[in-house]
Design a protein around this nucleic acid. Structure first.
Lengths: 337, 337
DNA sequence: CTGAAAGCGCTTACAG
DNA sequence: CTGAAAGCGCTTACAG
């Protein structure tokens, strides 16, 4: 049926040990001619090593898990996550690792996910900081775990994220430079931690430096629908507002639609800035001004750091922080005087 | 270190066989009290079976591969693919299977991907029919392989797709009913096979029935940029056109933008219909009329059929064909007279 | 440079 | 109802 080391060994008239050495590139232990002969047979028979057997014997799986919250339905893979996923798979493949994608419906499933396939490491994508905080030795064991976009201080995990404070500051400064003084901050609940909170801090910082008091805050989920709702009534609630900073593009796009529906011209009456620079943010009318994250950079950093720990036990103390960039497009303009 | 069957067996004072039987729910073979005792210990020690060892011994991995073309860069996961991915993972998890995500840069990697982890089956997402056609026994072996959106006649694979002919026909009939007679078909090369060809056939069919000759065809890649380019010059090339049917939403959205740039009002002067019903298609201005695919249905069918073969050897002969639906929005209107 | 032995953590018949 | 033996396909020391 399937071709095994033994089949190669028999065909070559050597032991499976020797074949194993050739397969694994330990050329110093095998003569050049034997190596050549074995390699030829391997090619002819189409031998592919059995990952399970290898993992079991070598006590390392070359497997990295990508864990994503699942709720009761399917994985909620945002466009932003999809791009990260693609980049991460590529980086792992380049390093000879494979990716297992796993939805997590309940916290206890994390332990099971990590152990059932002897993962060499795991990347957590889209989890809340409070979930990351709760991860303990009993669930994680000694497996390196990396959390994307996390501000958790959990020493058992390492973080890879964007410079959210700077990103929000750039957005605010852009609006301030256009003469806006009455800016609404829109996003999910501003916890006292997490990505949204950091963006709020950066935003607030810039306003304070310009001598402007705290912005009005509007709570909205990171969905298009919530954006539309907020946009429709924005000027009812905040009649003097001339700009909105939303913590996500998808929300900003909804807000633009709601404003337009309500007869409020964007950007002439109200400017809108988002965060993420999704592909679709340049397909809207007007095209969205936003803060771009370095998704490729996140994936590269995540994989590099995770494998460094898995292979060499190096445990970096500081999280990786990726640069952000303001992308100025058509949804922002000088404040109406 | 890690908790094994042996640890449980020692703690319970039984053989590993008995523990194995309990873990695998073969309750008929173990007394109720022994079962209870073992289950308690399993819970206390946090035992998780070792997937690799299980695969190796049982000759079945409970692993399904999701193979995606990778080119030289990262996986190109479209929003459409991301949603399928999430749904497929969910279905697999419900059935106790796990998903390996694997980018394929060269055709020969398929064989390696299937064998290296003893996959019980594989789903091919985003491959061209010509790639599917070339799959042979030597690469596939006896592993069930299912191709999404494929019209390949390769008997070694099974297909799951939307009813593309009907979808295109619905789009055409919608435009015809609005009085359009001069409609441009826009999409990638209309091969003599594949999804695009089927959509062309359905489209053509509807026109013929209405006594209208073959539509003008414009070749464009399935990208926003190609759509913009096409939209800008559409009326230069086809001065009498009053409508466009694009084989993908992303392309249609680009076309709308190009038309608008060129000063052509959509839908007053030119109507546009897409295909896919992406989330973003309702965020554009105007919102896009399009043909919706049943992505959840695709995932359910794909997983159900794949596992039926993997577990029972049932090989369905006919491909699964999912229903489509026209979503009428704001990008289509009565033909200008 | 080459190989025999032990073991990774399970399951599959089979015997009691 | 319970268990001893063999084996899945590899790798890891270790011996020659």
């Amino acid at each position: 049926m399937r071709v095994t080391l033994k089949d190669i060994a028999d065909a070559a008239g050597v032991s499976i040990m020797t074949v194993s050495n050739v397969i694994n590139g330990r050329h110093a232990r095998v003569s050049a001619e034997t190596t050549a002969r074995i390699q030829r047979i391997v090619g002819q028979l189409g031998y592919v090593p059995n990952g399970q057997a290898r993992s079991l014997a070598a006590q390392t799986s070359q497997l990295i898990g990508l864990l994503v919250p699942a709720g009761h339905g399917s994985l909620a893979i945002t466009p932003h996550h999809a791009e990260f996923l693609g980049q991460a798979e590529r980086q792992l493949r380049r390093h000879g690792y494979h990716l297992m994608l796993r939805g997590i419906a309940e916290p206890r499933e994390v332990a099971e996910a990590l152990r059932s396939w002897s993962l060499d490491g795991a990347i957590l994508l889209g989890f809340l900081d409070e979930d990351i905080d709760r991860l303990d030795r009993r669930t994680i064991g000694s497996i390196p775990v990396l959390a994307i976009d996390s501000y958790s201080a959990n020493p058992l995990t390492i973080g890879v994220r964007s410079d959210d404070v700077t990103g929000a500051r750039l957005a605010a400064e852009h609006l301030l430079s256009l003469g806006h003084k009455n800016i609404v901050f829109a996003g999910p609940t501003v916890h006292n931690a997490g990505v949204v909170h950091e963006r709020f801090l950066g935003f607030q910082q810039a306003l304070h430096q310009a001598g402007i008091p705290d912005p009005a805050v509007e709570t909205a989920d990171t969905t298009h629908a919530d954006g539309v709702t907020l946009g429709r009534r924005l000027l009812d609630t905040h009649p003097h507002a001339t700009a909105v900073f939303a913590t996500a593009d998808i929300l900003a796009i909804g807000i633009m639609e709601g404003l337009t529906e309500a007869g409020v011209p964007v950007p002439q009456r109200v400017s809108v800035v988002g965060f993420d620079n999704l592909d679709i943010s340049s397909y809207t009318t007007p095209k969205l001004t936003t803060v771009a994250q370095d998704i490729t950079g996140k994936a590269v950093e995540a994989v590099t750091r995770l494998l460094a720990i898995a292979e060499n036990g190096e445990h970096p103390s500081a999280p990786a922080v990726l640069d952000v960039e303001l992308i100025s497009r058509m949804s922002t303009a000088a404040a109406a005087s």
